[in-house]
Amino acid sequence: MAPRSAPSARRLRIGVELRRMRERAGMTAAEAARSLGTTQGQMSNIEANRFGVNADRIRTLARIYGCTDQHLVDALTDIAEDRTKGWWEEYREVLPTPHLDLAEMEHHSTALRVAQVINIPGLLQTPDHARALFGEAVPRLRPHEVEHRVSHRIKRQAVLFRDSPVPYTAIIHEAALRMQFGGRDVTRRQLRHLVTTSELPNVTLRVIPFDGTSFPTAGHGLDYAHGPVTALDTAQLDTSYGGELINAEGKLETYRLVLDRMERATLKPAASRDLIHRIADDI
């Protein structure tokens, strides 16, 4: 079987979850390989997803490991059987892979929760606002590189407007609303766009005001994508060196708690919209 070329983070998750099943079963890779009738090297390739893993093999390994979570097994086989290419593949030669992985993660999520302290969430940005942000990237991007990133970011927003839109909750600190990236006019249009988008039935926008209570954060933006089962949730932290995808169970639980506590520090959606209106009028 030929090696796969650059599997996406979503497909790599198959191997991650199969390894976790094996470890929970208390089996070594060598023991699992013997039970499957293959070599330890082949098992390593399966868990690293260097080769495609079909649905039958996933089910066989789940039986060997005594996995009783049928919802997880079904979700992994769905990933394995999905051979469609998403719109993000057209950017594979022009954008770093984490940009593509984020778009794929959002596309397949069952719900999205994000928290931002300094920036407007990407799925809620206007093209001009996004262009202003990418124009300040370090190292500096060339004009066509900026435009590739802007168009990719705007296309990601389709998950909010498609026939079956993803439920989306955004927690934004007032500081992010007052940052005038691109100048006053760009900021006003961005704030009005926030209000308009927040009125979609699938979108909930909540603001943490300056005079609000304390909340947990390290300052990084946090995107949390709910999978078809909790075990397949994924978080992304925005850092100065790019997005960092996280799927460790303990960390995911911590980030869910962080989002819950941040949400308790927010204004209700209607009050959040009122605050955004006031800030736009003041600019």
Rank of each mutant, 00 (worst) to 15 (best):
G183S: 06
E90N: 15
L160D: 03
I246T: 09
S109D: 08
L222G: 01
T28H: 05
S44F: 09
V94P: 09
D274I: 00
A25G: 02
D223G: 08
P3Q: 09
G221W: 04
G212M: 06
L275G: 01
T28M: 13
E93A: 14
T68M: 06
T84N: 12
Q116W: 02
Q190F: 02
F215P: 01
R184Y: 02
A33S: 07
F51I: 13
R4K: 08
E145W: 05
D101F: 05
I120T: 02
I118T: 12
E263I: 11
A115Y: 15
P127H: 08
G52P: 06
T84I: 00
H152L: 15
T230R: 07
D74T: 08
R264G: 04
F215S: 07
R34G: 05
R189Q: 08
Y168H: 10
A137I: 12
H277K: 09
E147M: 13
E244Y: 14
R156L: 06
L200Q: 15
R131H: 13
E104P: 05
Y255S: 03
W88A: 06
G243W: 10
V207H: 01
T28C: 14
A30K: 15
H226D: 09
E89S: 14
A48E: 14
D260Y: 07
L275I: 08
G182A: 14
M105L: 15
